[in-house]
Write a protein that binds this DNA or RNA. Structure first.
Lengths: 211, 211
DNA sequence: TAGATTGTTAATCGATTAACAATC
DNA sequence: TAGATTGTTAATCGATTAACAATC
């Protein structure tokens, strides 16, 4: 259970460190200190060290971390070096934009197929990936051992889709629909709630103009 | 300053309450208790009451909250009853899917136009909205008083876009590019970091299979 | 050795939850 | 009145930050 003790906040910052280190490209120094990472990302150096402490890769006093080691450790820890297959349900605009987002490859994510309840879409392809009819979801996930599902359907349709995914053996759901979903305890639901993000932004604006 | 003392977490839950209440539709009871909202959304009743306490709308012992009042108070508080104009920079797939997401209207968000550095796109339209060349950004934002900017360009291009937005008077930035941006203190940057979300999901799967 | 930087323990901060008095 | 439900004060929990000893 040691693995699961990593705080969610830490987990969410690890890809940020990785993106920063990768972004240094050719100019990346051989060694890098927590202080310099922290400065670049607007974080505290202690926080960076504490976050990185969950990796096998350890830093050395006076020199810092070996940049390349850190990158590899982060990639491995985040599972970027072996690919997880996923399915998308809802082949609307958002669904299709996720299907064709090439950046996911760098994150170890491969979208196998999409599903849509629209009979006009079922049987077609998008960006070389099949769009299938909903009744094939459970079977396909089971057979191919897909454990990650992405929901990009309207709010009303999301819960039935979630239920179907659970039946198909999906264990983690990335939910872009603006509703809370109910699923068994062991199925992780991560809500990508645009409305919540927007609330933070528009409140900031409202405050600015109320002053 | 009382206004700004609302915790971010609370702020992010308010749209969830609203979506739930709206979703009840015709079956919505006249009165609703914190306990029933909490049960539906998998939260604690005390948390719901504390969150709702930031609204002018107050509940009554024994009966709960007047549902309609709550909905209106949330809509007003979140600014859904007057529209904020926004611009999108980066008319790629994600940018276009945001441009044409009709759901934003319900959130009081109106995307006026997109900007793209690709000369082939500049001057065209998408979903009835103009795609303009980057050199018109500062002027347009200034003239129309646009204060909200959405960034959907690749990581490398994001910081220059951010700088341009700041010059144009943008005060809140919704950043979908996988980088951290640097901007003046008074400009709020909200990162919609897909990689962070993905990390939470794939770690959950990794743990499941390590057991 | 002296100085820089790590990793860790203790203190602080903020958010959630529990307890409970107020009230309809 | 008695019972349900609110709003608030105090306790708990978890994450961030400060302090500092270890070490290269």
């Amino acid at each position: 259970m040691a693995v699961s003790s990593i705080p969610r906040q830490t987990l969410m910052r690890l890809p940020v460190y990785l993106a920063y280190l990768r972004g240094l490209g050719a100019q990346a120094p051989v060694h890098i200190s927590s202080a310099s990472i922290a400065a670049a990302l607007n974080l505290g150096p202690v926080q960076v060290r504490k976050d990185l402490a969950c990796l096998p890769c350890t830093g050395r006093p006076k020199t810092g971390y070996v940049t390349a080691e850190l990158v590899h450790a982060l990639e491995h820890f985040l599972g970027y070096d072996d690919t997880a297959n996923a399915i998308v349900v809802g082949a609307g605009k958002l669904g299709r934009s996720l299907m064709s987002y090439s950046g996911f490859a760098r994150y170890g994510l491969n979208i196998l197929a999409a599903f849509d309840s629209d009979p006009a879409l079922a049987g077609t392809q998008y960006d070389g990936k099949p769009i299938l009819s909903m009744d094939r979801l459970v079977d396909l996930c089971g057979r191919l051992g897909v454990h990650l599902g992405i929901i990009t359907v309207p709010a009303e349709a999301a819960q039935p889709v979630c239920d179907l995914m659970v039946r198909g053996g999906i264990l983690a759901i990335w939910n872009f629909a603006p509703t809370r979903l109910t699923a068994p305890e062991d199925v992780l639901i991560h809500n990508e709630n645009m409305a919540s993000s927007l609330a933070v932004l528009s409140r900031h604006l409202a405050e600015r103009f109320k002053l």
